[in-house]
Simulated assay, not measured.
Amino acid sequence: MMGAIATMFAAAFAQAAAPMAKFQAPGFYRMALGDFEVTVLNDGTVDLPVDKQLRQPAAKSIQALDKSFVKAPLETSVNAFLINTGSKLVLFDTGAANLFGPTLGKLAANLKAAGYRPEQVDEIYITHMHPDHVGGLMAGGQIVFPNATVHAGKADADFWLNQVNMDNASADDKFVFQGAVASVSPYIKAGRFQPIEANGELMPGIKAYLTAGHTPGHVTYTVESKGQKLLLLGDLMHVAAVQFDDPSVTIAYDSDSPAAMTARQQAFADAAKGGYLIGAAHLQFPAIGHLRENGKGYQYVPVNYTQPR
């Protein structure tokens, strides 16, 4: 009798076991930068066959991934950065929306989870016009950020929004042109697009630097307040496990590999020497940290978790 009762209770407890949750916390992380507030927004992750995309022997890439306890295909973060200057709400890149597969497109929801609404965004600075950076500008054929002005490198706009270039592109590349046109053109038609043609200050505390290589008009940005500085790399790097140790390694996505390598090497050297923060679209979320020189490469030191105060 006692054995039967014990079996019954065991079965009841087994049936009451909690199911696996299988969802992540909202993808935003917040920190102070001087008088500014930085909110990193995650758009999701995408699996990339980086062992085949990095321009070095696949075995060497796999060895570097193993050293960092990851593997190919590499689950790669897609991030954007929201800066509250106190007078302006400024967004750097917008994620992919539906242009890059079902595992992305979470930026709008994470923006709202972070306490903001799309209509509050004043300025949007695009690093380049690849789909995972501009896709979030539109949703269902509608402008997502109705009060924002979009800024991007003029050379990128001239290249990716050019119908002749699209017509001459390979079948694999046409979707990049199509995504740029669908995402950016509505803002141009609404008078809410301004090209960036030179290095310089865009507003107090925010500067643009032309860093062509990954794309013809790739732009990196610095955000600075009270002597604290954050460099937003865009796609100057993709694979932390490889490119911090060896910044000379390029990737198939680069339109001009030597120029992309030079821009990355310079940015890394400047950040390490200056001791300022870096943030990047494809660093592991929350994607902010410092660089320390380490032989011919660099050691990445993620920021310490902090509570807003």
Rank of each mutant, 00 (worst) to 15 (best):
E119M: 02
H282Q: 12
P195I: 01
M138W: 04
Y305Q: 15
Q228P: 08
G295A: 09
L74F: 06
N110T: 02
T211I: 01
R292Y: 00
Q243P: 10
P258A: 00
Q56S: 10
P204W: 03
Y276N: 06
F100I: 03
V181W: 04
V249R: 00
P118V: 08
A6M: 15
D246A: 06
A148Q: 09
L233D: 05
K207T: 10
V38S: 08
T215H: 07
G275P: 02
H214R: 09
E224Y: 01
S183L: 08
I83D: 01
V164F: 07
K106P: 02
A155N: 05
I251C: 08
L82S: 05
M1T: 13
P49Q: 11
V121P: 01
S183M: 09
R117N: 12
L230I: 02
L33P: 05
T39A: 00
A180E: 07
A152L: 14
Q307F: 13
G95L: 03
P258R: 03
G200R: 08
R309E: 15
G27N: 06
A16K: 12
S248K: 07
A64I: 05
A260T: 02
F13A: 15
L233Q: 03
A287G: 15
Y298A: 07
A267S: 01
V164L: 10
A152G: 11
F69E: 14
I126V: 13
K273S: 14
A272M: 06
P57T: 08
P49R: 09
A18T: 14
F193L: 06
D156G: 05
K273W: 01
Q142S: 13
